[in-house]
Design a protein around this nucleic acid. Sequence first.
DNA 1: TTAGATATTGATAATCATTATCAACTATAA
DNA 2: TTATAGTTGATAATGATTATCAATATCTAA
Lengths: 145, 145
Amino acid sequence: MNAKERFEKFVTRKGLRRTLQRERVLEVFLATERHVTVQELYDLVRKKHSGIGYATVARTVKLMCESGVCRQVDFGDGSHRFEHKHGHEHHDHLICLECGKFEEIYSPELEKIQDRLVRKYGYIQESHKLDVFGLCPRCSKKKRK
Amino acid sequence: MNAKERFEKFVTRKGLRRTLQRERVLEVFLATERHVTVQELYDLVRKKHSGIGYATVARTVKLMCESGVCRQVDFGDGSHRFEHKHGHEHHDHLICLECGKFEEIYSPELEKIQDRLVRKYGYIQESHKLDVFGLCPRCSKKKRK
DNA sequence: TTAGATATTGATAATCATTATCAACTATAA
DNA sequence: TTATAGTTGATAATGATTATCAATATCTAA
């Protein structure tokens, strides 16, 4: 099931309505590979569809998060950014505190241990978010000088 | 080194000044085991020291985070909360999406694998944040009914 | 296909959190 | 003690998010 189907099923299942605006916001969101803020997504949307309002974009982002096609990423700078999961596997983030660059990382081993840990507490895992903060190779070299 | 020493050393090393207000905000913060917002901490501070302003509390929270005695925790509800590390070991969070309750979890194994992964990317780890979202035992039982 | 019920939209106002400003004050070093 | 520069509290400014509402669009049931 792709992201679009997933979102539309979610909307329908919730008794909400499928609208042109929601579809367009979703399309624009899926078409970018950046981690966008609501404002940035709004700007992108406006380039193609000038009639869509900020509130609609914000509301749609919230829905997209609930539906699971979108998730919030926080890199410690206070801004709220969102990324989609279309064509992505799940991944975590490795963020440089110095230059702000980040890597998307993934380790099946890490996932496995996490699963085991969560089950030990009797929880059913829905999702998780791991952000590692540190210094990237370039910045750590600079600092040592 | 306890949290108070750590904070004061940090302040001094940065060329900042030790003030009564900062000390009091820190004391009140360390005295609670809740995950507080700035506003909540401000309210707590005011109960004991009515002269301290909101801005001072907010500024001190920022300093406490930089110094490492405090860290931000986000439970997906949009509010910015802070917890201190006094008398705590490092831990991650297991958060129930249904009732909002959470557990503080820790696994040395998880930490080890994470370290290895980070090194593989050439990064130097400073800190990390793992939040697992799901259903707690009680809520998952309810849902199955 | 149509009508009625109700969700949605866009614009904007309201709210809330965070940050900036500044004059008065105070910690610190010499 | 004094000069310097950081700090404070009050409040204004800013930014982000949410609420409001009249007009409009969607969906369901008949």
